[in-house]
Design a protein around this nucleic acid. Sequence first.
DNA 1: CTGTTATCGATATTTTTTTATCGAATAGAG
DNA 2: CTCTATTCGATAAAAAAATATCGATAACAG
Lengths: 215, 215
Amino acid sequence: MPDRCVSKQTLQRLPAYLNYLRSQAGRAGKNVSATSIAEALGLNDVVVRKDLAAVSSKGRPKVGYARLELVRELESFLGYDNSQDAILVGAGKLGQALLSYSGFPQYGLNILAGFDADPSLAGREVAGKKILPMDKLPGLCRRVGVHIGIITVPGEQAQAVCDQLIDSGVLAVWNFANAHLRVPEGILVQNENMAVSLALLSNHLRERFSTKGGA
Amino acid sequence: MPDRCVSKQTLQRLPAYLNYLRSQAGRAGKNVSATSIAEALGLNDVVVRKDLAAVSSKGRPKVGYARLELVRELESFLGYDNSQDAILVGAGKLGQALLSYSGFPQYGLNILAGFDADPSLAGREVAGKKILPMDKLPGLCRRVGVHIGIITVPGEQAQAVCDQLIDSGVLAVWNFANAHLRVPEGILVQNENMAVSLALLSNHLRERFSTKGGA
DNA sequence: CTGTTATCGATATTTTTTTATCGAATAGAG
DNA sequence: CTCTATTCGATAAAAAAATATCGATAACAG
């Protein structure tokens, strides 16, 4: 792995490359060039080359990269081949949907269990995963060494849950709640905020209409 | 609305400001300063001031902004007060979860109906929303003037669905599928890609361990 | 009424990211 | 074997974003 410190933007493009390369699996050539990836994905070829340089150093002039090897390097870089344990807090609709999602293992994420403050949910199972009461959380996390916590509780409770997770040794939080989380230095919060996406959609439509309908 | 053309980064922060301001609703003062928002959210105060300048021009020295007014301006800018109709394609687990999510109207999104290629789903209802067969899609979109399409189908089908949506007049696509979508100029694709988020989480943990455990 | 302090808004600087350019390397054609 | 076309990787330039600095304004205290 040539470089461990890549920019956020690069990191966001890597899964797209991987996805594209996988989708090309049946294609003829054994090799693939940064130029062709860039064209397929509508990106600049220099960007692709620079991104790939962080993951692989096996690019050869006139040839490109060996597709299979590049796929493996991307998977390794993205941690897909090295599953991380996670727990989820908040077993409501969204929480249950995530618990039932069967695609996570392929991305290197293994949700061990769900937790919920509602005692009536405790003991239930969703997609083979136990819903446990909150007081079991620190024990499980510390025992197994869980470093990823997923928050799917209502916004008001998110900060409290987050604090608990960090107390229990979690280093990275995947936050689906509509709340800004304050965390100590060194802890990552990845917000999966629908409101943000909707803001971008809405802004696009507004710009569309103000420029098209404006004149 | 002073400025319509704001950067993506700014746009991504605006919902956080709105959320924070709403959460402060019960607080004493009628006014709020960019400085205090910045501190609460862990941002630079100049960034906040610059972002808010795109939304409001009512900031006064020594006073700040009138909280309620700023909330209204943010809501208006983000389109929360002006609901947009949308349709959803792919009524699987994730699709149904989104159809049942009751929080969208508060963000200015109104999902009219779901569509699915599976005929056995057609006619069903999820959370009061009809699942329709795909052949009804263009008609509904054109008749009602739907501009937002939500894609929750498996990756392989995403491009075909996307093309159909655009043919039917959709201008902005919210893509939950793990696929890169090619669209004509002027159409926005907002990817809600779990793989990207997981890549960021995984990278953070890797960096954590390589620096902490490396020495 | 005057001085002090908090805060905005504008300008300038620095940093980061994207895009462009150029030389080197290599496969394949002639 | 030599020439050409393609592609990589590095360096340079441009664009965008974040951060810092500074003057202006208005509330408040004395």
